[in-house]
Design a protein around this nucleic acid. Structure first.
Length: 592
RNA sequence: GCUGGCGUAGCUCAGUUGGUUAGAGCAUGGGAUUCAUAAACCCAAGGUCACUGGUUCGACUCCAGUCGCCAGCACCA
């Protein structure tokens, strides 16, 4: 089989906060599992991520912390990078849209994108009135205005809630036009905003919807329903135009000669996904001295591009980003002429659309004695990765977040459940099976793979079963069903434990050492296979298994997982425990 | 309000084109065992698959409606 090529991306984390378990289970862990599997399988893959450093929210966060956007974003960029590293999530490159080493290339690519889409006639320039904070010298996006709600209820009385923000009134539930708010105030400075005219460039998304719908019908059959339902629903409603520029100083400058473009930057969601490409370019520059080689990944019909994201990013990755990519290829007239027929570019020179956009739903959280609630940074209802890693190992978290992943619908993090899954499944089933025959192989067989001369029906049945699992698990992973993949592995460990109990080596060791040898041999063969399969999910524990089996890394691959270990092969030393027990009190649960 | 999603054992979740007695783990009760991080193994109990109606030889699975919960509703990311 020739090597397949994949470019896998993890959603760019916004660099104004630390990472919590919701981020990890939403995008990065499934992406890492997928990438580790592909690597193990021998495929050619690049794993791209980095921080999203632009946008108004970072500018305002910096203002509140009395620092600069550059300092703030770099600080969080580094914290996030450390958190990923601690969890064993290894990107080929971790860039940043405004980090010193990446910003130049990122700005260039983003501006090229914008110009091409502009020259292809997909923007409409439009002037509107927006609220402006004269003290902060800033236009105010929705959330940064508060005021009194102007909505009338059925009885004709005014809602009058003084807590309405520029996008929604919590009290009456209606959405708000910030220009109509009574007594508006800037959230940043408290100043009374004034109306000012401003000009922006609006991407005509509606023009792309036929082509996007066609693309969906061709490509999205095996995508997750939360992605396709959302996207097709939005297309059906009609895609509205969206401004792709902002009145800000922090970001990618708008690359037009137009005086109206002066002092404006690209909308953060315009340049963020381009970060995937610009970081790929940075990687190519680093590894081969040729940044333009990023096209070998992005414009190659044989390379599959796969985006892993949280559900809040679906609209950007499944609709706007593909529209942008199409906008670089076709002029507005060409799209008019082609109608809705989508065809992937067959040769290099044009961007390929993503092969899959893999989204997870949200992870809610339940603290002991409290109701289930959303993970919230501001309320402190989160489990932060850097905090977690101070006390506990990465594998239990990876295990729990995968086995309880919100693949199709929202799920709940519970501390009890985390502890139980670790102690009963990860340790009780998996760790236990790797551990429970160590005494025999050490005391009776000198830590060498013993003879399987007396292997019988039980042994053959078990190994046949075990050796079928890599194919099954691989299929599940390729279908993005990580939860199911992991549970297949765990079920196989359960079968191994049943086999061990049925074989009773602790008895045969006293009266039939040959039989005992066959049992231990079978256990070793099973662990040799299953250990490889564990690697994408719990890489730290899997590596301990590999060392215990005394196997080099090149033998630790998916295709070689079913290779038997020869009789007489010397094992490594007895491993320290693979996974440690966890008690609920190990957790500092007083998060709020 | 509009749009979409969800509602399966005490708990957390599966259920892949509608088809024989609806699954797993945990928790519970009983048994058996000792190699193992008091782990593993066997058995039992536990669900009118939110409710109502429809389509069908047959529906948890398709359709309609009702109730409940959640999300999005655009220049926030």
């Amino acid at each position: 089989m020739s090597k397949r090529r994949f470019l896998v991306t993890g959603a760019l984390p916004y660099s104004n906060n630390r990472l919590h378990v919701g981020h990890i289970t939403g995008a990065y862990l499934p992406a890492d599992i997928f990438v580790r599997y592909l690597r193990s399988n021998g495929d050619d893959v690049r794993f791209i991520c980095g921080s999203d450093d632009n946008g108004v929210a970072i500018e305002i966060s910096a203002m509140k912390e009395n620092t600069t956007p550059a300092e703030l974003s770099t600080r969080y960029h580094n914290l996030q990078k450390e958190a990923f590293k601690g969890l064993g999530i290894h990107f080929d490159i971790y860039g940043g849209t405004h980090q010193p080493d990446y910003v130049e290339l990122h700005n260039k690519l983003s501006q090229d994108f914008f110009k091409r889409i502009h020259d292809n006639g997909h923007f409409v320039k439009r002037t509107t009135e927006q609220l402006f904070d004269p003290k902060a010298n800033k236009f105010l996006p929705d959330r940064y205005v508060k005021g009194t709600c102007y909505h009338k209820n059925e009885q004709g009385t005014i809602c009058g809630s003084s807590d309405a923000t520029g996008d929604q009134c919590e009290q009456c539930g209606n959405s708000i036009d910030p220009l109509l708010l009574v007594e508006p105030k800037s959230v940043i400075t408290g100043a009374t905003p004034e109306r000012r005219k401003t000009t922006h460039w609006y991407l005509q998304l509606g023009k792309f919807q036929g082509m996007l719908a066609d693309w969906f019908s061709l490509s999205s059959l095996d995508w997750r329903p939360i992605v396709t339902n959302f996207s097709l629903g939005a297309i059906k409603k009609g895609l509205p135009e969206r401004a792709m520029t902002r009145d800000l100083s922090w970001g990618v400058p708008v690359p037009l000669d137009d005086p109206d473009a002066a002092g404006k930057v690209l909308y953060v969601w315009f340049d963020a996904p381009i970060g995937y490409a610009s970081f790929t370019a940075a990687l190519c520059q680093k590894s081969a001295g040729n940044w333009e080689a990023y096209k070998d990944w992005w414009q190659d019909p044989d390379c599959k591009i796969i985006h892993f994201i949280g559900e809040d990013n679906i609209v950007f990755h499944a609709l706007i980003w593909p529209a942008m990519l199409l906008g670089t290829q076709y002029t507005a007239e060409e799209i008019e002429k082609r109608g809705s027929a989508y065809a992937a570019p067959k040769e290099k020179g044009h961007y390929q659309l993503p092969s899959n956009v893999v989204a997870n739903a949200f992870l809610n959280i339940k603290f002991p004695g409290k109701e289930e609630e959303k993970i919230s940074k501001s309320r402190g209802t989160a489990v932060w990765i850097d905090e977690y890693l101070k006390y506990l190992d990465p594998d239990p978290l990876r295990y729990y977040l995968t086995s309880n992943a919100p693949e199709n619908q929202r799920t709940v993090w519970s501390f009890d459940d985390f502890v139980t899954k670790n102690n009963k499944e990860l340790i009780g089933s998996i760790g236990n099976f790797v551990n429970r025959w160590q005494k025999f192989v050490t005391e009776d067989f000198g830590r060498k793979v013993p003879s399987d001369a007396k292997a019988g029906e039980l042994e053959r049945t078990l190994l046949a079963r075990v050796r079928a699992v890599p194919g099954e698990v691989g299929e599940e992973i390729e279908a993005m069903r990580f939860k199911s993949a992991l549970s297949k592995i765990r079920e196989t460990f359960d079968e191994c434990n049943r086999y061990f109990d049925a074989s009773q080596p602790w008895i045969t060791r006293k009266n039939d050492l040959e039989q005992c040898a066959a049992t231990v041999n079978t256990c070793i063969q099973a662990v040799r296979t299953l250990g490889v399969l564990l690697e994408p999910f719990v890489p730290f524990g899997a590596d301990k298994i590999r060392e215990m089996l005394n196997l080099p890394r090149e033998a630790w691959t998916w295709p070689r997982a079913t290779e038997p270990l020869p009789v007489g092969h010397a094992l490594g030393p007895v491993p320290e425990v693979l996974f440690r027990r966890i008690e609920l009190k190990d957790f500092d649960v007083s998060a709020s």
